[in-house]
Write a protein that binds this DNA or RNA. Structure first.
Length: 431
DNA sequence: TCTGGGGTCCTAGGACCC
DNA sequence: TCTGGGGTCCTAGGACCC
């Protein structure tokens, strides 16, 4: 039996955990540059504010109803996520951290120790709330896809008290009939449109599909597995994370600038900073990358024909996690795609092609100096961990001498304090 | 005026080989 | 003009996820 634990309105709930005045209020959390809505409280949803909607399009609604709009504070959310996941890791033998606010648990055979699994889930839910102030819903079912579906039903139906267990054919059928097909895990816009045109509008309808039909219309083997999972035959297993961290196969750092940029030095400073961040993440998971991509985008709104994203990629002679080296390659790739006179709104750096364990052995014989570099990078990470953010950077990330630094950075006018992660912004308890 | 930032997996098709 | 039948590896792009 799988359990999916999903935090409700996670970013908003994190903010509320430290700002009780937000309780009961319509609240939204905004994306980078305060651009789009990425998390909504129930009250904000009730006002008709949609997920992913640009703030400026709902400005009047926000003002009219006094919606609290907060800039995102990822240091806070990451820290809160760690607390929730840390507790969940203690309630089941295996945990797969699926995203910042969701985890799959394997509860196989746990009835023996904990009695009815839905009762056990209710206790977990209560305890997460008590420890972190984060509300959750829990779906329990024989497959991951059904656990997602159970979770979704539990979330929509208050009578269920946040927990739904699908342990009989009747319960399962009942739940499948509740859920529109577009809300099934793995069915996006394209597939939903296709399914509706085939007369399939609910999860129950999709579960009745033949394998041939699923293969034909839903991306081959992906669709076949999806239908099997809805029928109760597990095709996806748990990918447990040993220490709570996830080893990624690619690492990206991309941002929309605070304002459009046309000076090479300004964009270079951004790209160098992105490469540095990506290298940091890379070292944290003890990987080394052999493929580096840099891209630049122009404004994609209100222009015809749609403007391009230019990108360039290089395969490195030797996989590395050395910031200075990655920044050097990133700079040269940027030079390749840079077009003087163009105006750019966004850039990004992507690391790929991580080396495997055996390949890493070879680096023992890497050119002289690699060990020195490794020690330097350790010190760099330690300093930045201790003094915060970007205390120590490579020069290119700061920008040319005499230029204003970080002009690519956006504004976060509505950010809450970093209650848990910054000494200067600790939560104050007034006596 | 203002429009996010990460990730995953799979497939098709081309290059290349025998 | 006719011009096999495999196999592998790689990449670009599409679809999905939160």
């Amino acid at each position: 039996m799988f359990a999916l634990v999903d935090c409700n309105n996670f970013y908003v709930s994190c903010e509320r955990a430290f700002q009780p005045r937000l309780e009961g209020q319509p609240v939204v959390v905004l994306s980078n540059n305060d651009g789009c809505i990425v998390s909504r409280s129930a009250e904000a949803k009730a006002l008709g504010i949609k997920m992913g909607e640009p703030l400026f399009q709902v400005r009047s609604l926000v003002e009219q109803h006094g919606v609290q709009a907060l800039s995102s504070n990822y240091a806070l959310y990451g820290d809160m996520s760690g607390r929730v996941m840390g507790y969940l890791a203690s309630v089941a033998p295996e945990l797969e951290i699926y995203s910042i606010d969701e985890a799959f648990l394997s509860l196989h055979g746990m009835e023996r120790w904990h009695g009815r699994l839905d009762d056990y889930a209710r206790r977990i839910r209560r305890e997460v709330k008590r420890r972190t102030h984060i509300p959750t819903c829990i779906g329990l079912a024989p497959t991951k896809t059904l656990a997602k579906l159970a979770n979704r039903v539990a979330k929509k139906d208050p009578a269920l008290g946040g927990v739904l267990l699908l342990d009989s054919p009747e319960r399962r059928q009942w739940a499948l009939e509740q859920v529109p097909v577009e809300d099934v895990w793995g069915v996006g816009r394209q597939y939903a449109t296709k399914l509706y045109s085939l007369g399939i509008s609910t999860a129950a309808g999709l579960a009745r599909c033949s394998e041939a039909m699923a293969r034909r219309h839903l991306g081959g083997v992906v669709g076949a597995r999806l239908v099997r999972e809805l029928q109760g035959y597990p095709c996806h297993h748990l990918a447990p994370s040993e220490d709570g961290s996830l080893a990624r196969q690619s690492i990206a750092c991309t941002r929309t600038f605070g304002r459009p940029l046309s000076q090479f030095e300004d964009v270079l400073a951004a790209v160098a900073a992105f490469a540095s961040r990506a290298a940091e993440k890379l070292r944290r998971q003890e990987s080394a990358a052999s493929v580096l991509t840099v891209f630049l985008s122009q404004n994609r709104f209100g222009t015809t024909p749609p403007p391009h994203t230019r990108s360039a990629q290089v395969t490195l002679p030797v996989a590395t996690s050395d910031t200075t080296e990655l920044v050097r390659f990133a700079r040269s790739l940027l030079g390749r795609i840079w077009q003087p006179g163009s105006v750019y709104v966004k850039a990004g750096v992507i690391l790929d092609g991580f080396e495997s364990g055996e390949q890493k052995q070879l680096s023992l014989f890497a050119p002289d100096g690699s060990e020195r570099t490794a020690r330097l990078m350790q010190k760099l990470d330690a300093l930045n961990a201790r003094f915060g953010g970007n205390s120590v950077q490579v020069a290119a990330a700061i920008g040319a001498v005499g230029r204003q630094p970080g002009v690519w950075k956006g504004q976060q006018r509505r950010r809450s304090p970093a209650f848990t992660t910054n000494w200067n912004e600790l939560w104050e308890i007034k006596a």
